[in-house]
Structures are given as structure tokens and as C-alpha cells.
Amino acid sequence: MTGTSVESLMAELSALEVAAVRAANERRGDDHGVNLAALRAIAKRLKTQPDLARDLWATGDRAARLLALLICKPRVFEHGELDSMLRQARAPKVHDWLVNYVVKKSPHAEQLRVAWTADPDPAVASAGWALTTERVAKKPDGLDLSGLLTTIEAELTDAPDRLQWAMNHTLAQIGIDHPEHRARALAIGKRLGVLKEYPTPPGCTSPYAPSWINAMVARQRGAE
């Protein structure tokens, strides 16, 4: 389907607003009330439309931006455009989808990873660490894993929540995927105790790095 206007889509999104969904999202910092399944259904109907995606993003509306990220073409965005979009993406879900659905597929991902990780804005830095976790898991060649652990050890405890979560994920991923660094990753996690008391539902893996590492390594060994 092509030719759908921003105005008609904004009206459609508005009609899909559910007060209970908005209330639940607002508790997580996301100010929209559209069920994500409904949002994905619209994206499936629209298919890929890069120009429309840019126009939806420009509205500043959270639900419209989520829809934009579902129908865009990640490789068409320039380095500066992605940097600007990330700095505008303050809502957690928009931030998460932008990094995972768009930036990770961009030819600029590595340049942005390096720049963002060192950024003084913790929300921006968290995106850099998310990209670092991706590299640790999929393309670790050239990464200084020991240096990353040193940085994490020095900065994790005092990092703001979103940044702390992202750095902790990198810590766990190093321990999971790189046996030569596992003992150090476990020791750092135990000494710092970050997220040790995080409430974890039954059957789910704790984000506390030592528990996370041990659980995933055991799962990998069980699959062998």
C-alpha cells in the first residue's frame, strides 16, 4: 500500500489509543497508548516506505516514530541523521527500536558505536554499549575485551539506570561468549553486585551478571 498520508496515519494511531495501554507504558517512560501488535499490523500493511517513515518521525509523536522505525529502510540513513535521531529518541521503546531495528543494520553502526560509547549523555552512551554488546556477540575481532572489562569495572556501579543496564549486558555477554574472560567477568559481577536484587519472575534469567553468565553457559553446554 502506497500513498498513505501522514495525516490519515496519525488519525488511525489516535483512534487506536487505549487508556490502559498508555498508563502501563507511562510507568516505563513511554508516552503512547497504541498496542504494539496493532502498530505492527499497520506496518505490515504499509510495507517499506522510507519517505513516509521520515515524515512520521518528524511528527515527534512516539507511536508515529515507532511506526516509522518499522517501515523505514535502515541503510538509507546518513551518519549524522542517525545521530540526530538517537538524541531525539528519549522514550525507552523508541530508543530501543532505533538501535536494534535501524542502527544495527546501518553501514555507520561501528562509527556510531565508537562515538556514542564515549558520549557524556548517558542515554546516547547506552546506545553505544548496546552496539558494543552486539559486536561482542557477533563480531568480536578487533575489540579490546579486557579494556572493556576495565571500563565496566570502573564505571558500572555509578552509571545511570539505562546506561548501567547496557554496560551490564556487555559484561554478561563477554562472560557468556568468551571463556578466556569468563572468570574475570564473573568476578567483576560478584564484586559490584549490580542488579543482584533485581526482581526476576520465575523461569526467567536474572540480569545479575554472574547468574546470567552461568545460566547461559549451562544452556549452551546442554545443547552440545
Results as ranks from 00 to 15, higher is better:
Asp158Ser: 15
Pro107Val: 12
Thr48Met: 04
Leu13Trp: 01
Ile213Glu: 02
Cys204Asn: 13
Leu149Cys: 01
Glu153Val: 01
Leu82Ile: 13
Gly175Tyr: 09
Met85Lys: 11
Val102Ala: 03
Arg75Ser: 14
Gly222Cys: 10
Ala166Glu: 12
Gln173Lys: 12
Ala159Thr: 04
Val18Gly: 01
Ala41Phe: 02
Leu131Gln: 03
Ala19Lys: 09
Arg90Gln: 12
Pro92Cys: 09
Glu12Met: 08
Val103Gln: 04
Gly142Trp: 03
Ala109Lys: 13
Gly203Cys: 11
Ile42Trp: 04
Val217Ile: 07
Ala58Phe: 03
Leu67Ile: 01
Thr200Glu: 00
Tyr198Asp: 11
Arg62Ile: 15
Trp57Glu: 11
Met85Glu: 04
Ala172Asp: 00
Asp158Ile: 07
Leu186Lys: 00
Val217Tyr: 11
Thr117Trp: 01
Glu197Gly: 00
Leu9Gly: 00
Gln220Gly: 14
Leu148Ile: 08
Lys139Asn: 13
Tyr208Cys: 00
Arg219Phe: 10
Gln173Trp: 11
Pro202Ala: 15
His79Phe: 11
Leu163Ala: 01
Asn25Phe: 05
Leu66Arg: 07
Trp116His: 07
Ile176Tyr: 05
Gly203Trp: 08
Ala11Pro: 02
Met216Phe: 11
Thr157Trp: 09
Arg22Leu: 15
Thr48Lys: 14
Leu163Asn: 01
Arg113Leu: 14
Asn35Ala: 14
Phe77Val: 09
Val18Cys: 08
Leu195Ser: 08
Arg191Thr: 05
Ala209Leu: 03
Arg27Ile: 12
Ala172Val: 05
Asn100Val: 02
Asp96Ser: 14
Ala115Pro: 02
Pro140Lys: 03
Glu197Pro: 06
Leu82Arg: 10
Ala137Leu: 12
Glu7Lys: 13
Gly147Trp: 07
Pro201Val: 06
Val94Leu: 05
Ser84Ala: 14
Gly80Cys: 10
Ile213Gly: 00
Asp51Ile: 06
Pro140Arg: 00
Ala137Trp: 11
Gln164Asp: 09
Leu67Trp: 02
Arg62Ala: 14
Arg62His: 13
Arg87Ile: 06
Ala15Asn: 05
Val217Cys: 06
Lys196Thr: 00
His108Asp: 09
Glu197Gln: 13
Lys104His: 13
Arg184Ser: 07
Arg219Gly: 03
Arg75Trp: 09
Met10Asp: 05
Asn25Tyr: 05
Thr59Glu: 06
Pro207Cys: 08
Asp31Gly: 00
Arg45Lys: 10
Arg62Tyr: 10
Asp30Phe: 09
Ala172Pro: 01
Ala154His: 04
Asp61Arg: 10
Ala209Trp: 03
Pro122Met: 03
Tyr208Thr: 04
Tyr208Phe: 13
Lys73Trp: 12
Glu134Leu: 13
Ala172Asn: 02
Glu134Asp: 15
Glu180Arg: 14
Ile176Thr: 10
Ala37Tyr: 13
Leu39Thr: 01
Trp97Asp: 15
Asp119Thr: 12
Met10Ala: 06
Pro50Ala: 05
Asp31Trp: 07
Pro207His: 10
Ser5Lys: 07
Leu195Pro: 00
Ala43Met: 03
Thr205Met: 10
Leu163Asp: 05
Val114Pro: 07
Pro50Val: 06
Asp141Lys: 15
Leu156Phe: 00
Ser126Tyr: 04
Glu110Ser: 13
Val99Lys: 09
Leu70Phe: 06
